[in-house]
């Protein structure tokens, strides 16, 4: 059941890859440099797949679109020079979180799962509100002088580890506590009690 759903998805991914390559070539041909071209493509894929996550009926496809979205985001991280982060994004998000979510979807998907009503009644106001949020953020961003530096800084693993283990060793340690707490509680909650409801 899972497999026959996955096959079209993999096909879809392949198509996206081809389209991406073609689009990049075309953008470069139109006069953009490679970084810009990639940015545009990743941005388009990210937004497009993001929209699919929140609008598609079949929740499994939503999950897969989310993987695509996060993949594109990782690409943008690379453009920004945060390669290490991009790697973490792929490993943790695509590798762990997304799989976890897909797993949960399959656990809780009933046969007669109502795909009839994806949205709540207040979907239209929510859409309007979200558009307003986007516009406000965009306007604020454009109107603000961020005082950004002219050149960009490449993040080396060296610099990163220095920051991480000198200034932020405490959060780093605490994250492990957080994960421990989450796992203990999560296991407790998800565990089936003997004699409890199946």
């Amino acid at each position: 059941m899972v497999m026959h759903r996955l096959v079209p998805i993999i096909l879809g991914l392949a198509v996206i890859g081809v389209v991406t390559a073609v689009a990049a070539a075309m953008l470069v041909f139109l006069g953009q440099n490679w970084a810009d071209a990639l940015f545009w493509i990743f941005a388009a894929v990210m937004i497009g797949s993001g929209l699919m996550v929140v609008t598609m009926r079949d929740i499994i496809r939503c999950g897969l679109a989310m993987i695509v979205c996060f993949g594109a985001l990782a690409g943008i991280y690379v453009i920004l020079g945060a390669t290490l982060l991009a790697a973490a994004q792929v490993i943790v998000y695509i590798g762990a979180i997304s799989v976890l979510i897909l797993f949960a979807i399959m656990l809780t998907q009933t046969k007669d799962a109502p795909s009839r009503l994806v949205f709540q009644t207040q979907a239209v106001p929510a859409a309007i509100a979200s558009i307003v949020i986007a516009i406000i953020i965009a306007l604020a961003v454009v109107a603000t002088d961020w005082g950004e530096a002219a050149q960009r800084f490449r993040i080396t693993a060296d610099a990163l580890s220095k920051v991480l283990f000198e200034s932020y060793v405490l959060p780093f340690e605490v994250i492990s506590v957080l994960l421990l707490a989450a796992v203990i509680g999560g296991v407790y909650l998800a565990k089936r009690e003997p004699g409890g409801p199946s």
């Binding site: 605490v174 989450a182 999560g186 407790y188 009690e193």
Partner: peptide, 18 residues
Amino acid sequence: IGLELMVLPGYLLAGFHK
């Protein structure tokens, strides 16, 4: 991170009577 460490267990506790 402190905030998350405070609220995440809270979610779990709210559903403690599972």
